[in-house]
Design a protein around this nucleic acid. Sequence first.
DNA 1: AAGCTGACTATGG
DNA 2: GCCATAGCCAGCT
Length: 108
Amino acid sequence: MSSDFYDRVYAVVQQIPQGRVSTYGAIARYLGTAQSARMVGYALNGCSSTGTYIPAHRVVNRLGQLSGKRYFGGPTTMQELLACEGVRTEDNQIINFEQHFWDPAMNL
DNA sequence: AAGCTGACTATGG
DNA sequence: GCCATAGCCAGCT
């Protein structure tokens, strides 16, 4: 039922190593739809519907901001998940974002 | 079927 | 340097 686009997004996000983060734009570009960064987040919106665990907390916007933390049910859920993996955040933004950044196109 | 929405990004003022 | 506007694509109403 999930479109190929959704499935690809999930596949990439699942391949993000623990303690690393990626961006919507990077994933979108890897999928071939560089202009559809919004769709990446939109796809993650249905990650719970897939029944598969998707580390969506490892996906942030290009500034390293936890733009989608409000979709995790708690105001600090995403932040805690990242912190649990060793990713420090400050004011909803990842510290040393470039250091944690993981580009699928660069590793896949 | 047609229009709106959105976890983005880039550009302009 | 910050706020406003536009472009984008795929899913949802």
